[in-house]
Write a protein that binds this DNA or RNA. Sequence first.
DNA 1: CGCCGGCGTCAAAAGCGCGTCAACAAGCGT
DNA 2: ACGCTTGTTGACGCGCTTTTGACGCCGGCG
Lengths: 225, 225
Amino acid sequence: MTRILVVDDEPQIVRALRINLRARKYDVDTAPDGASALHAAARQHPDLVVLDLGLPDMDGTEVIRGLRGWTVVPIIVLSGRADSQDKVDALDAGADDYITKPFGVDELLARVRAVTRRGQTAGEAVATITIGESVIDLGNRSIIRDGTDVRLSPTEWRLLEHLLRHPGKLHSQRALLHDVWGPQYLTESNYLRQYMARLRRKLEIDPTHPRHLLTEPGMGYRFRP
Amino acid sequence: MTRILVVDDEPQIVRALRINLRARKYDVDTAPDGASALHAAARQHPDLVVLDLGLPDMDGTEVIRGLRGWTVVPIIVLSGRADSQDKVDALDAGADDYITKPFGVDELLARVRAVTRRGQTAGEAVATITIGESVIDLGNRSIIRDGTDVRLSPTEWRLLEHLLRHPGKLHSQRALLHDVWGPQYLTESNYLRQYMARLRRKLEIDPTHPRHLLTEPGMGYRFRP
DNA sequence: CGCCGGCGTCAAAAGCGCGTCAACAAGCGT
DNA sequence: ACGCTTGTTGACGCGCTTTTGACGCCGGCG
């Protein structure tokens, strides 16, 4: 299920988008201003952000920059102003698309499909990965081990996915905490210890001697294929 | 250099785009109709396609479908029609963005930057350095020697990285101590002796006769490729 | 020929990162 | 309201990294 975070301060627009998106089987969260949008994104890790530029508390491009500091989640900007400079600023700040109000719902939905389509094809390259006797399907979010399927919590999935996206690459603790938990958890290394241990118990043949989910003392963690 | 294929049957628009894109250091190819566009894309593998929907020989969405059959190259659609249904059709056929004429050149350029931005993050070149029989990947922070991987502690990594960043350059002991351990360790040369020995044991074929991690007596240390 | 500073090496102590266990809080479906 | 899953937090001990000290070798120099 694709999670979409809608950021807008006009209740009727939020309501209209929520209804239309829910009808298309999207999971919708909402935020009324920039600060709560950044907080919600860090907490819920949406797959797409629909952002109105006219927010009460901060400039829209600042919200984009705040998101781009730590995530590459697609961002579609809504704006009442058709000024060319506004579009350039938002796109260069990191937005993926820019729609001028008033807009047709059909067009927005089509652009939602367009930007989410790219994210899917990017992850498709690493469709299935094997760790020990576990076969991991990132696309379907499923793991099969010894014929039975293994269940992972959302946080476990995000952590595992970050490690698997770049096989062999060392991920520093700060980077993992930043990407999985959010910018304000950079020093909570006990989270990492806890969840790496869970992943090893669920995936490694011998969790006390991991062969694929490796620790580099003082450096971070690494997935070895 | 990013290669852009511009598909349009109006010579003045093609000319304007070519001038503006060339000025931004893009490599520009052009095609006047759908058939030659498909042919050019297959032959030149552009990094981006700018496609006018109003082509003389075939429908624009057919061109998009023809491209999407074998490539995921980003496609930006130009169109004179602001009809919502046209946008939906083009985007669902596989276009990445849709701009309605008349459009500002600044906006087009910003959208070009937006769609090319994603592709860049995927394909990053890996710089790899060889010492004896050890292959060092600074990006992934990994070393492979004789098929098995070598583990380095954080201090060992920092020291090795400083030497490798400037091949052939002589690093004084004071400079290395300052950069690796900090300003208050400038005289602790025994640290350097200790850690240079550890690096040689892990990387050099014959640690007692180093061929790449060299000592310049009285001067400092040097990495010879 | 003997002294001396610089360097490589070994060994052991000190410090800290990491794995692990345990317990509690917060949702969430039943 | 209850039980289950998930997320959060604290504490402890082992093992690795870092730090520290000491010794021997070698070349330069008086």
